[in-house]
């Protein structure tokens, strides 16, 4: 076991939690993300392997499939023939190695776990919060949807896990700016 200590995207030793106006926002650090891009001509084969891994149909554009729970994996549609596999973070060192065996050279795999920060937001007024954050129509961002938008000039993914639960995934280096934008909107969203 190595001696280095990880920090969260916000630079803390434990996930930062904010509770504002009935919202709870928590830094998510226990999920691994791996980009899965099908090699030429392997779209269907890769989709099939992915479906098996997430135990659900491979998601179409604008959606995710599977479950983001402690023991289950999910896949977020990114582009034609490209998904982001979201898996429980066990040891980040083995995930691409074990996945490489699963995909057998049919997909290009790139570990993206550390490229992103992720905030889980829960609360009854997620739609209102969305309205202050980005141009996505919250009426269409229903459970199972995953889409890309811009939050205060930061490119981010919005993953709707349920009526009261949303994941915002943004670039790790801008975690503080994204955190500021979301907490500000939470404070301001009493209207």
């Amino acid at each position: 076991m190595h001696s280095l200590k990880a920090v969260t995207p916000l630079g803390a030793s434990a996930p930062v939690v904010d509770e504002i106006n009935g919202f709870t926002m928590r830094e998510v650090v226990d999920r691994a993300l791996v980009s899965v891009a099908a090699r030429k001509g392997q779209d269907k084969a890769v989709a099939k392997i992915l479906a098996k891994l997430i135990d659900a149909p491979t998601p179409q554009a604008g959606h995710f499939g599977g479950a983001m729970t402690k023991s289950k994996s999910a896949a977020i549609w990114m582009a034609p023939a490209q998904w982001m596999l979201d898996a429980p973070m066990k040891s980040r060192d083995d995930i691409t190695t074990s996945l490489a065996a699963e995909f057998g050279g049919k997909a290009s795999l790139t570990d993206q776990s550390d490229a992103w920060c992720r905030f889980e937001i829960t609360g009854p007024q997620i739609d209102r919060l969305c309205s202050l954050l980005c141009a996505v129509d919250p009426r269409r961002l229903t459970a199972g949807c995953a889409t890309r938008s811009s939050i205060e000039h930061i490119g981010a993914f919005l993953v709707r896990l349920g009526r009261t639960k949303l994941h915002v995934i943004g670039p790790r280096s801008s975690a503080a700016s994204l955190h500021h934008a979301i907490t500000t909107a939470m404070t301001s969203s009493v209207y």
Binding site: T110, Q112, S113, A115
Partner: peptide, 8 residues
């Protein structure tokens, strides 16, 4: 296949 890993 390409993907940015600047932040990774």
């Amino acid at each position: 296949q390409i993907i940015s890993t600047t932040e990774s």
